[in-house]
Design a protein around this nucleic acid. Structure first.
Length: 407
RNA sequence: GGGAGAGUUCCCGAGUGGCCAAAGGGGGCAGACUGUAAAUCUGUUGGCAGUGCCUUCGGUGGUUCGAAUCCACCCUCUCCCA
């Protein structure tokens, strides 16, 4: 089975421009492909992880990946898949984000010995001359066609600025530039990028009379059709500072039954045969598969040691009771105590478990807070230093959130 | 440039002078049931202090005892005409 067939079997491929050609290139390690990443935050998140996985799989099959960081296109803002206008980002923010991306990616993709490249489209986009671009590139685009593209259609009601309208042209120009510079013959991206990617193949055909290919990967959607990797607090990040390994592990440990196998196929490097075995599990047995999924992913992102810690921590908490070793924790100082006491509400705030005291009161009233296994029943309950005699207390919020307060 | 309309709390969306911290739905959170799942049911959903205060209905001023609601100007968006 070639790598292309494997991608299909894992349910990763959404659309391709020319299946035969792409299979041929990819399976024989002849592809030089690029994937673009918009530096809209200072860390990569789960959505990017799919793309990174794909890069790695293809790299292992002998193809050469180019990670393109959109330092230039971020100045414009991609309207695809968005119903509202993007906030304009400052140059400084973009530069900061670019360097964060660079660091995270190099942990995952092998950039040594020219096996992969990392480029920033700011290097060629920012110096373009407006009139020149219009004549060279603008002439190749039909506004009529652009307006028919799905990504703009959605915006026709809510409004689309000329700035954003140009995003497709800039992305197309990237492909064109990479083709000439590095012989990049293929572009991958999320399925919402389809029209932008076609713009690039079309531009290359017109300008150079050469064929280039595009392929989109399925977005990671849950059984309800919503994008995965988002929590109420925001995205699930790959950096340990923004999403701790424990939280990361828990996110995957808690996915719906219906989504476990799909996630395994799309995100892990477990063999398809092995995954088939997990797919046979039923009922509460599915929990085993969830543990494997969570462990494998945490290992990929944070390393085996952290993954083991997260797994043991979770098992201890949920199965056997109270191992506090790997629990997220907050250290309290003397200033947090008034006359040797701290109120439960202040404690919860200090540990960032609640955003406001009103929320805390509600939680306590509804029986959602326990400290050292004792349910807190009084909203103005206080803890004294005596309660910290063993050095910490364990706070339980709801059923799944555990936190250790150390003194 | 001319004309018409819109901007409400996390999101959608009601509200056209006091009964509005603002209906309803979605989402979130908590409880029950469970398998750290789903479905279902219940409660809850601006902040701070215990019943009152503060901040919030695009922005800034104004009218009024009292404004999300009326007036003026401004900003943003949509539609029609050019």
């Amino acid at each position: 089975m070639g790598v292309y067939e494997e991608l299909v079997a894992r349910g990763l491929i959404a659309q391709v421009t020319d299946e035969k050609e792409i299979r041929e290139l990819v399976n024989n390690g002849k592809a030089v492909f690029y994937i673009g990443f918009d530096p809209t935050a200072d860390s990569l998140h789960v959505g990017h992880f799919m793309a990174l996985c794909l890069m790695k799989r293809l790299q292992m099959a002998g193809n050469k990946p180019i990670a393109l960081i959109g330092g230039g296109t971020a100045m414009i803002g991609d309207p695809s898949g968005r119903t509202d206008m993007r906030q304009m980002m400052t140059k400084e923010t973009i530069e900061h984000n670019v360097s964060c991306f660079r660091e995270q990616m190099s942990k995952f993709i092998d950039f040594s010995d020219d096996k992969a490249l990392m480029v920033n489209n700011a290097d060629w986009l920012l110096d373009l001359n407006y009139v020149e671009v219009l004549r060279e590139v603008g002439a190749c685009f039909s506004v009529n066609n652009m307006l028919r593209a799905e990504c703009y259609k959605q915006r026709m009601e809510k409004g689309l600025s000329f700035l954003e309208f140009n995003y497709m042209i800039m992305q197309s120009y990237d492909f064109y530039a990479l083709y000439q510079k590095y012989g990049c013959n293929m572009q991958f991206g999320g399925d919402d990028q389809w029209s932008n990617m076609l713009g690039g193949t079309e531009l290359i055909r017109r300008k150079l009379s050469k064929d280039a290919y595009a392929m989109t990967i399925n977005l990671l959607l849950n059984s309800e059709g919503k994008k995965m990797g988002k929590t109420q607090k925001g995205a699930v990040w790959l950096s340990a500072e923004k999403t701790s390994p424990f939280e990361f592990y828990q996110y995957w440990r808690n996915v719906d039954d219906a989504d476990v196998i799909k996630c395994m196929k799309m995100l892990t490097f477990l063999s398809l045969d092995e995954i088939e075995e997990y797919a046979k599990l039923e009922g509460s047995e599915i929990n085993k598969a969830k543990e494997v999924l969570a462990f494998e992913l945490t290992k990929l992102i944070h390393g085996e040691e952290e993954a083991t810690k997260a797994q043991e921590g979770a098992r201890a908490l949920f199965v056997s009771g109270n191992d506090t070793e790997n629990m997220p924790s907050t250290t309290l100082s003397d200033d947090d105590f008034t006359e040797g006491e701290i109120s439960v509400l202040d404690l919860l705030i200090k540990c960032s478990l609640i955003p406001s005291k009103g929320e805390g009161k509600r939680l306590i009233t509804q029986g959602g807070v326990s400290i050292d296994d004792a349910k807190v029943t009084e909203i103005f309950a206080k803890l004294s230093l005596k309660d910290f005699e063993k050095g910490y207390v364990v706070i339980k919020k709801g059923k799944k959130v555990f936190h250790k307060a150390v003194k």
